[in-house]
């Protein structure tokens, strides 16, 4: 018997059977591979955090190095407490919920704090990890990646060459505002705070800039504004402690502050 492949019934049955087979196949593949994939993602996230700490993730055993050097902590009520739940692989939701993760790391160069940040680029999400030195004022290292930025342009934020441009930059300007930013390629004026962007990828560069300043802004309490010097130090015209102020001959105002800036 030859089937009439043009009949309505055949077409309909064919479509239904095809969809069922395909759906079953995809569901099977997806659930069979889920655990391996999740382990890979967690491993990759840890590798990204290590990259921000200037550790080459391809050269070390990521799991072991991470366990040895990095502690997953939460910033709560002004202090760091150990984070007990499962390791997270994306931090956008956690940050939105006010769950501020900080990775405290002991590296060969001393204690570093890694802060996760998330944002949006030109085509999709961006994320990154910024490692701060122990004083939390300068950048030790950074790692960025993206969902779907243009290859060869925006996607270059994922390259170490770009990420290394953040090293040694200051987070705050002299007014205590977050000044660390990415500017249009080739237009760096303030070398202490500005990072050169990527040619041909201004929108992605802007996305990174917004992500960094918003992301660090969320952690303002943790990072803290730069410590003012004991007396005016030429930065303000009043002092928190009058006795200290008297001792400081350079103090221009020699008066106690009536409204200390919070």
């Amino acid at each position: 018997m030859k089937l009439n492949t043009n009949s309505n019934v055949y077409t309909f049955v064919y479509a239904v059977v095809m969809v069922i087979i395909v759906a079953f196949l995809l569901a099977f593949v997806s659930s069979a591979l889920k655990d391996t994939q999740e382990a890979n993602v967690a491993n990759d996230t840890k590798g990204q955090i290590l990259s921000a700490l200037r550790i080459d993730k391809n050269a070390v055993d990521v799991q072991a190095t991470f366990a040895e050097k990095v502690q997953d902590k939460l910033f709560q009520n002004g202090e760091l407490v150990p984070y007990e739940s499962d390791f997270l692989t994306s931090y956008g939701q956690a940050i939105k919920d006010g769950e501020l993760h900080v990775f405290e790391a002991t590296t060969d160069d001393g204690v570093k704090y890694v802060i996760p940040v998330t944002g949006r680029g030109l085509w999709g999400g961006l994320w990154g990890y910024i490692a701060l030195n122990e004083d939390k004022q300068t950048v030790y290292g950074s790692y960025f990646y993206h969902e779907s930025e243009t290859a060869g342009l925006g996607a270059r934020i994922g390259e170490t060459e770009f990420q290394n441009r953040f090293q040694g930059k200051q987070v705050f300007d002299e007014n205590g505002d977050i000044a660390l930013t990415v500017v249009k390629a080739g237009s760096v004026k303030d070398d202490a705070h500005e990072v050169d962007g990527i040619t041909g990828a201004t929108l992605t560069s802007n996305g990174v800039a917004a992500m960094v300043s918003e992301g660090l802004g969320k952690y303002a309490d943790f990072i803290g504004v730069p410590a003012q010097e004991a007396c005016c130090g030429g930065k303000s015209d009043c002092c928190e402690d009058k006795a200290e102020c008297e001792k400081d001959a350079d103090c221009p105002a020699k008066q106690e502050c009536t409204n200390v800036e919070q």
Binding site: V22, L25, L26, V29, S30, L33, T36, Q37, N40, V41, N43, D44
Partner: peptide, 15 residues
């Protein structure tokens, strides 16, 4: 389907 399966396999074995 083919593309999805290949991409899932890559994700699991050659991340």
């Amino acid at each position: 389907t083919l593309v999805t399966i290949v991409s899932q396999l890559l994700k699991a074995y050659v991340y």
